[in-house]
Design a protein around this nucleic acid. Sequence first.
DNA 1: GGGATGCCTTGATCTTTGTCAAACAGAAAA
DNA 2: TTTTCTGTTTGACAAAGATCAAGGCATCCC
Lengths: 245, 245
Amino acid sequence: MNIDIRMAHLFSALDDDQVRQVMESSHTGTLKDGESLFETGDEANRFFLVIGGQIKLFRVSSNGDQKIIDIIQPGNTFAEALMFMEHPIYPVSAEALGPAKVISFDNRRFLQILSGSIEVCFRIMGTMSQRLRGLIKEIDDLTLQSATTRLCALLLHRMEDVGQDHFTLPAAKGVLAARLSMKPETFSRILQNLSTKNILKTKSNEIEVLDESLLRSLAHLESIYGLEPEKPCVLKGQNISIDLN
Amino acid sequence: MNIDIRMAHLFSALDDDQVRQVMESSHTGTLKDGESLFETGDEANRFFLVIGGQIKLFRVSSNGDQKIIDIIQPGNTFAEALMFMEHPIYPVSAEALGPAKVISFDNRRFLQILSGSIEVCFRIMGTMSQRLRGLIKEIDDLTLQSATTRLCALLLHRMEDVGQDHFTLPAAKGVLAARLSMKPETFSRILQNLSTKNILKTKSNEIEVLDESLLRSLAHLESIYGLEPEKPCVLKGQNISIDLN
DNA sequence: GGGATGCCTTGATCTTTGTCAAACAGAAAA
DNA sequence: TTTTCTGTTTGACAAAGATCAAGGCATCCC
């Protein structure tokens, strides 16, 4: 297997020699569906690059609920930010969502390389900066937006990624529900509700968006990014009463 | 006014000459209560160090609610992570909570210094890493914990900071409520509830904790950090039924 | 002192989401 | 084909918080 880790943003500034050094400390692993990579509270001496499948990062509450913090896609690294802490401890658990393949790297080794390359440092800082922004957005969603809003926003993003109004959900419904911090039942009901309102059609994991602009207004994406003047939102929650006049 | 910015973790690795350079691009400002520093969506060319008072970072939802993301205390920097983005835009709004004093710094100038000092880079990465961890913890709290749990956790932290079971709330109740993502009414009711249960006494903004261990179990701090085996939590929500046998 | 003003509290009620339990569907195994 | 399994849907219900409206209690200012 010959993978160029420079496909990952984090490593993209490394020269051949540095790549060799990093790879020396690396370890490639294959994970079965549901197999655990590490758990919340484990000592964090390594960070990871996903090269196949998906890895889910999550936390578990005292009553057993799990909240998915992120789903890492191939080509992306995770847990690299911990490298800079004195006593690095994973703040989340990680396990494979379906079969997956990851490479892990030794923190100490990578720090050595880092200390020799400002460019790589900047690269990392950029990555971390983006992650920070993403988390703030997430907090925003969780506190300021309703379940319906969050689901609509996810559908719109998916739609834009695919570039079509007809697409497949990027994961099982239950998984998406956990990602959006809601119960599968709620997820299901919202979809059904949107269906009833003729905003979309659903057939198992296939979604067809019928009314994009309505969907968009339910997701009020404008205000999330603060690009539009805040406007009072008439449509709210699940009890959408839409007037098509 | 002669402030050594090295009190801030971010700057602590700078030598005299670097401090001088940074200060050249700096600008000190005084803010009145409620005065705005920047708003969500503004172009982010500068970052800040609080040297007096408090700065609140928040986002506003489409229906006017505001969620406080963080309250920055003197000696701390904020918005420095944006420096590494191509098109830096503040993801939150910032305004003074009471009269406050801040120093702002030019991103570009600081990046220049950064590019000459690996040590400062590492310092920044450490700061960002901690912030990431804090945000993950926050998401955890918001999705996996109840309002009561969050409030109890805040009280305990405050108590540990002060080192006494008798202390003053670190801000107005309404502000704390927004910080914890709940309505002032809910905040009030929870406090009253804890009072009724003889867990604490409250007199305006003074809190006296009567039963720390009970408070701690309501906050279930153990499970948040994953240090303890997960145990089913019997006490939940606001309707606390405690058996003192 | 006496308003006014700005929090904070309290009560009644409503909404959103979660819970529990059962039915259902589709895919894989037998 | 039937069985089994897992994930999804549906319905009735409960609970945590939000909302609305009113009252209380400070402080500031004239």
